[in-house]
Write a protein that binds this DNA or RNA. Structure first.
Lengths: 149, 149
DNA sequence: TATTGTTATACTCTATAACTATA
DNA sequence: TATAGTTATAGAGTATAACAATA
């Protein structure tokens, strides 16, 4: 096997490319992949606390503070009162937050098209199936866009 | 498209997994993927200067200093006299360096097998072909194992 | 006593800029 | 003057530990 042609190497190379391209596509929206992940989790679970979103994203809760600071300053998220726990914030998306989340989703779809462009429809389906099988076998629970781990 | 099932997302996830697994497999050898890449380039071009290897790895030459310091301290590389330029070091692998490089290659092969385990031979070939096509279309010249970029 | 959010601090990795000795 | 190697410094990014308010 040519060392620079290995599946593991090419996967790492293409994965880094995907991460970098996604970050570049989000840049005009004023957010990073981490912000995008936070928006997604808050959208899927409105009213979550910072601790809960941090658990879902698998980051420390102190990192969540700055992340929510950014999103709140950008008007994408609001820290509301938690109905049952006065220590916690209940996080909600604003209308802008929902719009930016949708635009981020569109950017991700565009990136999929861009990356799959050299493959024909049959190859695309096979590649996608293989990815799912390999990710499942590796025990990768899709929690957050991998900045690094 | 389910957001967490996207090709771009799964590729990034699996790519990060590959990078982390490779780093873990190299750990017993006492080197990182960066050290491994340096060993490889020196092996492919014996007598190279630090600047030349830095260019191949697409890192700054000052970062190369610490990398070669590590490899030299581990007895894997020696800084020899450059035949034509007294400013430069001519880098050579030691016998240990060649052995560690071979062991790193074996680790990478093992990682390939591990990652491809859930696929049948036909799927493996198709996945490999797709990876090459996508990497080529993305303009990814395989230079170094992507720590980050 | 445990937990949420926060802040302060430290650590890792890398980028920028200088310095030296040669070319 | 330009370049190879080196060193020093600073900047991200994240981890660790402590703190106040509340449970």
């Amino acid at each position: 096997m040519e060392p620079l042609e290995r599946v593991s190497y090419l996967t790492a190379l293409l994965g880094a490319h995907s991460r970098n391209r996604f970050a570049a596509l989000l840049c005009p929206l004023g957010i990073t992949p981490q912000h995008f992940a936070a928006l997604r989790w808050i959208s899927l679970n409105d009213g979550s606390t910072q601790q809960e979103v941090a658990d879902l994203m698998e980051v420390r809760r102190n990192l969540m503070v700055g992340l929510v600071d950014d999103l709140e300053a950008a008007g994408l998220v609001i820290r509301g009162r938690h109905p049952a726990d006065r220590r916690a914030h209940a996080l909600h998306l604003t209308a802008s937050g929902r719009r930016v989340l949708a635009e981020g989703d569109a950017a991700a779809d565009a990136l999929d098209d861009e990356m799959l462009a050299p493959l024909d429809p049959c190859q695309r389906a096979a590649f996608h199936d293989a990815l799912r099988a390999m990710a499942a076998a590796a025990g990768l629970s899709p929690g957050v866009f991998p900045e690094n781990r």
